Amino acid sequence: MEAGPRDRPQPPQDEPVPELLLGAGEESFRELRPPRRLRIWQLAPIVVLAVVGSLMFAFPLAFDFGDGGAVIAMLGLLISSCAAGWGMMAARRVGHTWPGLPPRGSGRRPDWRVVALYVLVVGTVAALAIWRVARLR
Rank of each mutant, 00 (worst) to 15 (best):
A129W: 09
R30N: 06
A116E: 07
R137F: 12
D111I: 02
R132C: 00
T124E: 05
S106T: 09
P110V: 01
R108M: 11
P103L: 08
Q13W: 14
E2D: 11
S81W: 03
R39V: 10
R104M: 11
G66V: 04
A73S: 15
V133E: 00
S81Q: 05
E2R: 14
M74N: 10
T97H: 15
P5Q: 05
R33V: 07
P18W: 05
P34I: 01
M74E: 11
M89K: 11
G87Q: 06
Q10N: 03
G66R: 02
L49A: 06
A126S: 05
G105T: 01
P99S: 13
P5E: 09
G4R: 08
A24D: 10
A91V: 01
V51Y: 03
E19V: 11
I46C: 00
G25W: 14
L136I: 02
I79A: 07
I130Q: 09
E15M: 12
G69N: 11
G53N: 08
D111M: 02
R104K: 08
G53C: 05
V17M: 13
E31P: 00
S54K: 10
A129S: 12
R30C: 03
A24N: 11
G95P: 12
G4P: 01
P9H: 05
F65R: 09
G100A: 09
V114C: 06
G23H: 05
G25E: 14
R8P: 01
Q42Y: 14
A116V: 12
P5L: 13
P11R: 10
L136G: 04
P110G: 06
W86P: 03
A83C: 06
R137E: 14
L55I: 09
R33A: 09
W41Y: 10
R30H: 13
T97Y: 02
A73V: 06
Q42F: 13
F57R: 06
F59I: 14
M56T: 00
G95I: 00
A62G: 15
A134G: 12
V133F: 05
L120D: 04
D64Y: 02
R113F: 04
F59C: 10
W98H: 13
A83Y: 04
E19W: 05
G66L: 03
I40Y: 11
A3K: 15
G100C: 13
L117V: 06
L32S: 08
L128I: 07
I130P: 01
A3E: 13
W86I: 01
L61K: 08
